[in-house]
Write a protein that binds this DNA or RNA. Structure first.
Lengths: 194, 194, 194, 194
DNA sequence: AGATAAGCGAGACGGTACGTCCTGTCTTAGG
DNA sequence: CCTAAGACAGGACGTACCGTCTCGCTTATCT
């Protein structure tokens, strides 16, 4: 049986070198051309070391951009619901921009091929982000900005959905004005249905 | 110079065998494990023949499921906007269901890695579908179901977006009731902003 | 099932390049450091091509030096038994000289690890050589140089054995004078026992 | 500078465990598949401990079978030269039998790849054995069983050579009768040339 | 009708990357 | 300072596909 490696003995140097190499290579050649072999060489690390600590190149990149993606989960609360949602959505759009071969967009794509990676992303990024979103919505309900019986799942879908439609089909992502328009429509819809 | 092959002399037998093999293999092993080599063997066709007529495995699969994806582009008009949109969206959801290793969802994912494939899909599927959608919206405007000055780009984003948010993060896709709720919210929002 | 490759379609260029690269590399780094990977790179050939046509690096080298080793099998007959055996044995000694990282000695060594290689060498080189030796012995019997009832298996062992004892333990190989002395002893022994 | 380890502090438990594991694994998988890694794991010993005390896997095995190989060096003297040589040679044959994946034969083979190991074997086993052989021969000369001016190097080659010829080419090793026949021939040859 | 040229199956080819294995060195913690 | 444990850089292993190519063979068009 292949016992798990001991995290206490892990080389911090190797860990950092791998993550930096992954980011750099992903920017240079894109996620599709990113290879474990390439990361290992660039990082001055053996392939075995990568396979020991990460199950796939997606997992490496997820670690590498984790502080980036963790920002998705943070929902500010200034008291202005529309402004807060616009800020959140603009952040997401900025991280997804495929022109820059965004590692975040790449991860989303890769998770379609790799259910294990999809599960990790869901647990580490998406579900926390949804929890934060729902907190913000309940705050808005208490403030009377949306109805107290508004369906938060609907709100989630309508706020975030537009971004992903464009992302999937590589249509041009939203400008800040477009985001604002959609946020206003969604809030109007939630109020009208309340 | 490598001149283009002559479509008149193309073997129909080989064409059909490739498309059927692609569908069958995609269902069996998923798009990620689908290979040109595997398709060729299964189809009893030489790899050369595939490379002669298709630029990538995504293109093969797009051909193979083209009648499926063409259905995305068809927007019915029964006069009932909400019903028509629900029908359309339920069709899309059904085709995207990742539990069945849907080739349509696979194509959407693959297009993230292959800009050429993305362009083909956009031209052949997405833009026609959007055109059909806009026709349907204008019909709804004439019928007074949504305001005449409603922003159709916003409508597009809000109607379709929810599906893709869930698709990207592999969250459970919508039931028909959920679709209905979202359609109602979007229409309400469009009316409220009109 | 992995069907055998078709020899008719084999690339002569690749075949020759592999054999030349194998010889060159073996001379440079020795058989122990010889790798399939290194041969492939040096020959400008893919590893797959080597694995397609040879089962092991030993088999590659055996092909590469086959015209050399085939010379082991040739027994001349000048009528002078002692002279002919000395010539044969000196040839063997020359090919086995480990100072020059002899590929022939390397093959003999490698065959200890690889029974399949050992079998090929036995069939292609050793048994033919023994057959040639026995022909030469029978000729000597007819000429009255050794008894007609001399045990040819004993003769084989005593003529060739000395070389291999020294080879196995990497003792200095025989000079031509030493070979001559041993040949004379063996012939004397065969006569005395006849 | 890496100073030599202190033999006084050496763990007897580790030493014994390594040697036993080496023997056991060599019998199970053969010398070719024997690895330092495997020995360390089987022995419950760190790889470092092996590398500290032995330069190569061949050296480990040589230690492990040293009481076996030391027997090669012992030449009895019953007064009957032919009988003593037969006993010696049968002992050697028994230890070399490749059917049982003999570690002794494996060492002889490995020494072709590892000059350092070859040197150790030569010093520890072969040269002492030759010295013992020459003592026995001089005793035979004094007893008048072979000429006083017989060439002992020739005798060595002719007595031992036959075994190694068959060993190198993995021909079936000698039976006791065959050994006897060869011993008789060699003694006859030495007398005839004296 | 025969010649010509293309598509076709088959699959060998030079490559790239895979994920595994072992080497020999180095680090950590315990005795 | 030896030890068990095992992480590390390195590098070869043998495999899988990639996309290109060259073979004969069919097969359809064009003399």
């Amino acid at each position: 049986m292949a016992s798990a490696p001991d995290p206490n003995r892990r080389s911090e140097r190797a860990r950092v070198a791998v993550l930096e190499a992954a980011i750099a290579l992903c920017r240079e050649v894109g996620f599709g051309q990113l290879t474990i072999e390439g990361i290992a060489e660039r990082a001055g690390v053996s392939k075995k070391t990568i396979y020991r600590w990460w199950p796939s190149k997606g997992a490496v990149l997820l670690d590498a951009v984790s502080e980036l993606v963790d920002r998705i989960a943070r929902h500010g609360d200034t008291g202005d619901l529309a402004a807060d949602m616009c800020a959140q959505l603009n952040t997401v759009v900025a991280m997804m921009n495929p022109q820059e071969m965004s590692p975040v967009a790449a991860l989303a794509s890769e998770s379609q091929r790799d259910p294990a990676l999809a599960a990790v992303i869901r647990e580490r990024v998406i579900l926390p982000s949804i929890a934060g979103f729902e907190d913000r919505m309940r705050s808005a309900q208490r403030a009377g900005q949306i109805p107290v019986d508004a369906d938060l799942h609907v709100a989630l879908d309508l706020f975030y959905g537009p971004i992903y439609h464009r992302l999937v089909y590589r249509l041009p992502l939203h400008t800040e004005e477009e985001i604002r328009t959609r946020v206003d429509h969604v809030i109007a819809g939630l109020r009208a249905m309340g």
